[in-house]
């Protein structure tokens, strides 16, 4: 790890940490809740940004891992009445699912387009299955899955081992913000590690990596599992956000969201997807308040236009623009050349 990265990530941690701590005192409760939701969704966006943008594996199923994480947290927290063990369970359940699914897909050497469709299909299977769990026979311990009505009254996060110290909206804002910062910094560190470099190599040229002796099937499963863990963590935040989870997180419209956030923000970056999440979630919220244009219509149009005209997304386009200007300035007469 070089010094400029250390300084950069240190700054992100300090400035971000300070903002997360002081912002709730200056914002209204509605803004605090909205930003908490944005943080949870940003973690979901980061899970796809890592898997798709750096390991080169496109998955429709991040929303499924997010939802499974949320459901696992809900079921465990209701049964234990305590979030201490619910959080690790909520991360491990999607990881197990991803390893199983990843084994089926990557060890069969399915091409990326098939992986896309299968992850979507698995998401839809879970949607169908969760939808018909309204009968009382579908219980996990004391937690009733509730079909399309979902699970209400999920216990909030508490200090490990202390059920009496639980998180209210302001504490949830700080936890969610802290988790987002930690995931962002963790991914940046992962990407400069050996594993991260190998994954990027696989994205660039899978055959070459294989000829050099790397098992790309295993690498893909590992990347898939890491992304599932991150998505599951996002699901925990989401289940805490309004203490409620229902199967809509598995439907097609929700599964579409992380992909749109990543594409619009910029594939191959980590800040882009966070920006995309905040911008589009805010836009959806604003569009939801008016009756003239349907939300799907606007999102669909924006998305199609981006794929056609700005396929690299916002952040890479801005970077390219800045670099062009710098290059342009360097070529002007009177400026010293190196």
């Amino acid at each position: 790890m070089n010094r400029s990265l250390t300084i950069q990530l240190g700054l992100v941690a300090i400035v971000g940490g300070l903002l997360v701590l002081i912002l709730p005192s200056y914002l209204g409760i509605d803004r605090v809740l909205q930003l908490t939701l944005n943080f949870a969704f940003s973690v979901l966006a980061l899970s796809l940004a890592f898997l798709w943008g750096y390991a080169g594996v496109f998955s429709f199923g991040q929303a499924a891992f997010f939802g499974v994480g949320a459901y696992a947290y809900a079921a465990a927290a209701i049964n234990f009445g305590d979030s201490t063990w619910a959080v690790p369970i909520a991360i491990l359940t999607p990881v197990l699912l991803s390893v199983l699914l990843g084994y089926f897909m990557f060890y069969a050497r399915l091409t990326s387009i098939y992986v896309a469709v299968i992850t979507l299909v698995v998401t839809l299977i879970i949607y169908k299955f969760m939808g018909q769990t309204a009968k009382p026979s579908y219980m996990i311990g004391n937690a009733s899955l509730g079909g399309y009505n979902g699970i209400p009254a999920i216990p909030p996060l508490n200090v490990p081992g202390r059920i009496d110290l639980w998180a209210g909206p302001v504490e949830m804002f700080r936890i969610a913000g802290g988790v987002l910062l930690a995931v962002y910094i963790g991914l940046r560190l992962l990407l400069v590690s050996r594993l991260g470099r190998v994954l990027v190599g696989m994205r660039e040229n899978e055959l070459r990596m294989e000829l050099m002796g790397f098992d790309t099937r295993l690498l893909k499963v590992v990347a898939f599992a890491i992304s599932a863990a991150i998505a599951g963590l996002g699901g925990v935040l989401f289940a805490n956000w309004n203490a409620f989870i229902d199967p809509h997180v598995f439907n097609l419209a929700f599964a579409a969201q992380p992909i749109i956030w990543v594409i619009i923000g910029g594939l191959g970056t980590l800040t882009g997807p966070i920006l995309g999440t905040v911008v589009l979630s805010t836009l959806s919220l604003e569009l939801g308040t008016q009756k003239m244009l349907d939300v799907n219509l606007v999102l669909g149009a924006i998305f199609t236009i981006f794929v056609l005209l700005v396929p690299q997304g916002i952040i890479p386009s801005i970077r390219a623009f800045l670099e062009n200007r710098r290059a342009g300035a360097a070529n002007k007469p009177g400026v010293a050349h190196e």
């Binding site: 496109f58 990326s112 387009i113 896309a116 419209a253 579409a256 992909i259 594409i263 244009l293 349907d294 939300v295 799907n296 219509l297 606007v298 999102l299 669909g300 149009a301 924006i302 998305f303 199609t304 236009i305 981006f306 794929v307 056609l308 396929p311």
Partner: peptide, 25 residues
């Protein structure tokens, strides 16, 4: 978008949202 299979998938998905929204309106 011919030859860019992943992009056709994403673009047609945008179209699918668009048409759903239009018919809902």
């Amino acid at each position: 978008l011919y030859g860019r299979m992943m992009d056709t998938l994403l673009a047609t998905w945008g179209i699918s949202l668009f048409i759903t929204g239009l018919i809902t309106m």
